[in-house]
Simulated assay, not measured.
Amino acid sequence: MAKAGNCADFREAFKNSFQELLKPDLQNGPSSKTEALIRSDLYSATIATAYLDWLAGIYGKASLDEVLKVTEQLLKEQIQNFEASRP
């Protein structure tokens, strides 16, 4: 069910659920509303994709904990790179 080609509506709804959870936290930061919305979309898509790809077996025998830790670390690195590059 979690495979990309099978349930596009489910995948989109799953991503949107994460996005709704992230929006309030991101909108309270120093970024503009547009930036907060884009960040919430990027983060939610990343988290949802990692989780659904794990369910679909794309990561082999990796545990969910491992997948989420790697995803979290990569997102943190991207945030730090973005913040460092701001004028």
Rank of each mutant, 00 (worst) to 15 (best):
M1H: 13
M1Q: 08
A2I: 02
K3T: 14
K3W: 08
K3F: 06
A4M: 08
G5R: 07
G5S: 10
C7E: 13
C7Q: 10
A8Q: 12
A8M: 03
D9C: 04
F10M: 09
R11H: 02
E12D: 12
E12T: 15
A13K: 10
A13Q: 10
A13Y: 05
A13I: 04
F14E: 00
K15Y: 03
K15C: 11
N16H: 12
N16A: 13
N16W: 05
S17Y: 08
S17A: 11
F18T: 00
Q19N: 09
E20W: 01
L21Q: 13
L21K: 14
L21P: 01
L21T: 13
L22G: 03
P24A: 10
P24D: 08
P24C: 04
P24M: 06
D25G: 15
D25A: 15
L26C: 09
L26T: 00
N28T: 10
N28H: 09
G29K: 09
P30E: 15
P30T: 13
P30I: 12
P30D: 15
S31D: 11
S31R: 14
S31W: 11
S32W: 03
S32Q: 00
S32L: 02
S32G: 09
S32C: 02
S32F: 00
S32I: 00
S32P: 02
E35P: 05
E35A: 13
E35N: 06
E35D: 14
I38C: 07
S40D: 00
S40M: 01
D41M: 02
L42Y: 10
Y43R: 05
S44I: 05
S44E: 03
A45R: 11
T46H: 01
T46A: 14
I47F: 11
I47L: 15
I47E: 02
A48Y: 00
A48M: 00
A50N: 00
Y51C: 14
L52A: 00
D53S: 03
D53I: 00
W54I: 02
W54V: 06
W54R: 10
L55K: 15
A56Y: 04
A56P: 08
I58Y: 12
I58V: 15
I58L: 14
Y59E: 05
G60I: 02
G60P: 05
G60H: 04
K61Q: 14
A62N: 11
A62M: 13
A62Q: 11
S63N: 04
S63I: 01
L64T: 03
L64C: 04
D65V: 05
D65I: 00
E66N: 10
V67Y: 02
V67G: 01
L68M: 15
L68G: 06
L68H: 04
L68N: 10
K69E: 14
K69P: 02
V70F: 09
T71R: 06
E72T: 15
E72G: 13
Q73M: 01
Q73A: 15
L74F: 07
L74G: 09
L75K: 04
L75T: 07
K76Q: 13
E77I: 06
E77P: 03
Q78N: 15
Q78T: 09
Q80L: 11
Q80P: 01
